[in-house]
Computed example of a mutant assay.
Amino acid sequence: ARVLASLNHPAIASVYSVEREDSLHFLVMELAAGEDLAKRIARGPIPIDEALGIARQIADALEVAHENGVVHRDLKPANVMLAADGSVKVLDFGLAKAIAPIATEDSLSPTMSPTVTSTGTLAGTILGTAAYMSPEQAKGHPVDRRADVWAFGCVLLEMLTGRLTFAGDSIAETLAAVMKEQPDWDSLPAGTPPRIVRLLRRCLVKDPRGRFRDAGDARIVLDEVLAGDEGDSGIAATPVSAPLWKRALPWALALLLAVALVFTRFVPGTAGSKPAPSVPTLDLSIVLSDEETATLASYDYEVMPSFAVSPAGDRLVYTTLEGGRKLLSRRLDSPSTELLRGTEGASGPFFSRDSSWIGFFVDNALVKVPAGGGARITITEGVGIA
C-alpha cells in the first residue's frame, strides 16, 4: 500500500492513507469522477483517434507504475475512469491480490469476474480478471510487467472493435480462449494505423518473451503514431491490414528473395559465375505451420527479424513455436530442417560473418551457439530487443 501511495501521476488514482477499523484494513483513495471505460465501450467501438488518446494515458500510467516496481495485474475497462474533459484515471493498482471474491462461478461475467486460480476455482490468490488475463496468469504462473502489457492490448483492441478480445460463455471457456485462440484481427476498423496493428500483435503474443517488456514500449509507439511520425500520416489514413496470409506474404517473399540471391552461387552463367561441372539442386519450398506464420506476421521487422540467411549463402535459420520458441536450421541444398540445440527462447537470430556461429537474444542476454547447434555461450547481458 505504501508503494501504491508513492505513485504520483495524473492518470493514477491516488492512495491517501491506509486505515484500520477493528480487524478490517482498507485504503482511502481519490474519488475519480466520470464514466468507466466499460460503459463507454458498451455503447459501441470508440473512434480511432479517441481510443489512441485514451490508450496513451493508460500506457503512461502503467509505465510509471512499472518503473516503481508495481504490476497492476487486473487492468480492464471497468478499472479505467473517463472524465468529462477526456482525462483518464486508472484504478485499483495491485489490489486484485487483496480482494476476496463473494460470488459463485456461475453468477460471474468473464469481464467482471475475480481471477481464478490455476485449478479453476474461486478460492486462493486473486491474480486478474478472466477476459483480460495473460496466458501465464491463466495457467497460475508468476506474472510480471508483461501481464499488464497483455491486458493493455486486450483493452485497446476492445476499444477499437467494441467487443471482447477473448470471450466465452463461462469463465472456463474464456480462459481456454485466452490460452488457445488468436484475436480476430479482421475486426479492426478501417483506418487503423499499421503500427497500431503491430503494437497490438506485440502486446498479445502468448509467449511473454515475445511481448513488449513494459508499458513504456507501447507508450513510445502511441506517441509516434499520434504525432504522425514513422509514415503514419494521421490517425485514419491507412486501411486495416489484410488477412493473415496476405500480411505474412511480404515476409515469405523476402525470405525467398534472400534465397534467390544466393542461388547464383550454384547456377553456372549467373552473376558472372564460371560454368560448373554440376549444379546442386535447391529445394526452395519452406512450409510453415499456422502458428509460425502468425509469428512471422506479428513481428516488427524493423527491430526483430525472425529468420536469417548465412553470409556463406548455404544455410537458413528461422523461429518455430513448436514445443516453445526455438530455432530451426536448414541447409539450402536440402529439403529437411533440424532443431538447433541450445536455442530455447531465441528471438532475432543472425549469423556471424564466417557463418560458423548463430547469435540471438534470450530474455535480456545476447548469446551464440555453433551453427550446427550446441552449448549456449553468453556474449553479454542487460540487452534485448524492445
Rank of each mutant, 00 (worst) to 15 (best):
H9A: 06
P10V: 06
I12D: 04
S14L: 06
S14M: 06
H25Q: 13
F26I: 08
E30M: 11
A32R: 12
G34Y: 01
E35N: 01
I41P: 14
I41W: 09
A42Y: 03
R43D: 10
R43L: 10
I46L: 02
A51T: 01
I54F: 08
A55N: 01
D60A: 15
H66N: 11
N68P: 06
R73K: 13
P77C: 10
A78Q: 12
V80R: 10
M81P: 01
L82I: 13
A83Q: 10
V88R: 01
K89F: 03
V90Q: 03
L91A: 05
D92T: 09
F93L: 14
F93V: 09
I102L: 09
T104R: 13
M112W: 07
V116I: 13
T117E: 07
T117S: 15
S118M: 05
T119D: 15
T119C: 05
G120N: 04
L122G: 08
M133A: 04
P135M: 06
G140N: 10
G140K: 04
V143F: 03
R146Y: 13
R146P: 11
A147N: 11
V149Y: 14
E158A: 15
M159R: 07
L164K: 15
L164N: 15
A167Q: 14
A172T: 13
L175H: 03
A177F: 07
V178I: 14
K180Q: 14
S187Y: 11
L188H: 13
P193N: 05
I196E: 02
R201P: 01
L204P: 05
V205S: 11
P208Y: 05
R209M: 11
G210L: 10
R211K: 07
R211G: 05
R211V: 08
F212M: 11
G216Y: 09
A218R: 07
A218W: 06
I220D: 14
V225P: 10
G228E: 12
G228T: 11
D229E: 15
G231Y: 07
G234K: 09
G234I: 08
A237F: 02
P239E: 01
P239S: 07
V240D: 02
P250N: 09
W251H: 11
A254F: 01
L256P: 02
L257S: 12
A258V: 00
A260K: 14
T264C: 10
R265M: 09
F266Y: 15
V267D: 07
P275V: 02
T281Y: 04
D283W: 03
L284R: 05
L288D: 02
S289P: 04
T295N: 11
A297V: 06
V303D: 12
S306H: 12
A308R: 14
P311T: 12
R315N: 01
Y318G: 01
L321P: 03
E322G: 00
G324V: 00
R325C: 01
K326F: 00
S329Y: 02
R331W: 06
S334V: 03
T337S: 15
E338Q: 15
L339H: 02
E344I: 12
F351G: 09
S352H: 09
S352E: 04
S352V: 02
I358W: 04
I358T: 09
G359L: 07
D363E: 14
N364T: 13
L366C: 06
V367P: 11
K368A: 09
P370Q: 05
G373M: 03
I379Y: 03
G382K: 11
G384F: 13
G384C: 08
I385R: 12
A386Q: 10
